[in-house]
């Protein structure tokens, strides 16, 4: 493998990291504020993909515009879900089985609705942009991936601004840090939770629409992305946006490099071994288990510890 090969792998890993971060950040917001592991995230991603498809199919919306349009729609949808179901869950500082199962039930319902409406044939969104790419030297960059990456980065920056510059963002952060103290100083727990759930859902729908530009989708489209999102937020320490970006980058690099770079091993002299591509999904899960065991607070926790020591 030449240096250019490595560089182009690195760039494609970076592009992948953008969409991974956008996909995982909705889960982080919900986990941070409500300590709910949102298994229905898979359902929201799937609906987001079909939303972009319908917008493209019926109104000839560019999928990027479809993704942006998904934000308000899924925001309202998420607030509705919170109002109808989530707010009745017992409050807790740690994820409860009840919340896991409730969100799992919701995911099943959403998936079934997907099957009823669209059947189980795989759809994909095909625009004139889909097959074209930009060439820089020997490296070629697919336009679709660039556009998706840009959209993901812009959305993350906006989210970061909301988090740090608005009253709503501040109340979310206070709930993440200490729900009791937040309520004492006058943060409306119920309202902030509802808005955060809406925000998390909006981002799931948005990311689903972006994913629809890159991958074919069926109503069973969510699970691999759900588990990846989960690995990412665990890597990122579960409740910070910059942690999510870092986690997404690590997962994307590992996934890209694990199957494209030969591993040296010794058997009658040095050999190289390519991990079969079919093992790629296992990378994230192995990473999940290892990270949970070694770094239960994620990378952010590790840095925090370092800072405290010095």
């Amino acid at each position: 493998m030449t240096a250019v090969d490595y560089l182009s792998l690195l760039i494609s890993a970076l592009l992948l990291a953008g969409i991974y971060a956008a996909m995982a950040v909705g889960m982080t917001v919900i986990y941070g504020v409500m300590k709910i592991v949102n298994l229905a995230h898979a359902g929201f991603l799937m609906l987001g993909a079909y939303f972009a498809f319908e917008m493209y199919d019926r109104f000839h919306f560019d999928p990027i515009l479809g993704a942006v349009a998904a934000l308000p729609v899924f925001f309202v949808f998420g607030m509705g879900v919170h109002w109808l179901l989530v707010r009745w869950l017992p409050k807790s500082d740690t994820p409860t089985l009840a919340s896991l199962l409730l969100m799992f039930g919701l995911w099943q319902v959403l998936q079934n609705i997907g099957y009823l409406k669209w059947g189980n044939t795989a759809y994909s969104i095909f625009t004139p942009r889909s097959l074209s790419s930009i060439h820089i030297g020997e490296i070629s960059l697919p336009k679709d991936k660039l556009v998706v990456f840009a959209a993901a980065v812009v959305s993350l920056v906006l989210l970061q601004l909301i988090f740090h510059r608005s009253w709503f963002g501040r109340s979310m952060r206070s709930l993440i840090q200490n729900p009791y103290a937040a309520q004492i100083v006058g943060v409306d727990d119920e309202r902030t939770s509802r808005l955060s759930f809406g925000l998390g859902t909006a981002f799931a729908g948005f990311a689903g629409a972006l994913l629809a530009m890159l991958y074919p989708f069926t109503p069973d489209f969510g699970p691999p992305f759900l588990l990846r999102s989960f690995v990412i937020i665990v890597l990122g320490g579960l409740e910070s946006i910059s942690g999510v970006a870092l986690g997404a980058l690590i997962l994307a690099v590992l996934e890209t490099f694990s199957i494209n770079v030969p591993l040296p091993w010794y058997w009658h002299g040095w050999n190289s071994y390519y991990l079969p591509a079919s093992y790629q999904p296992a990378v994230s899960f192995v990473l999940l288990v290892v990270v949970l065991l070694v770094l239960p607070k994620g990378i952010a926790g590790l840095l925090e510890k370092k800072w405290r020591v010095t």
Partner: peptide, 28 residues
């Protein structure tokens, strides 16, 4: 042996990873 060092929800989440890893390996 490794996962019971984790508590409550973290154990639950790790088992999702174990299950999916096993399925991928058996698939291949």
């Amino acid at each position: 042996l490794p996962t019971f060092r984790l508590r409550g929800p973290y154990f639950a989440i790790a088992t999702i990873g174990v299950g999916e890893t096993t399925r991928v390996i058996m698939n291949n």
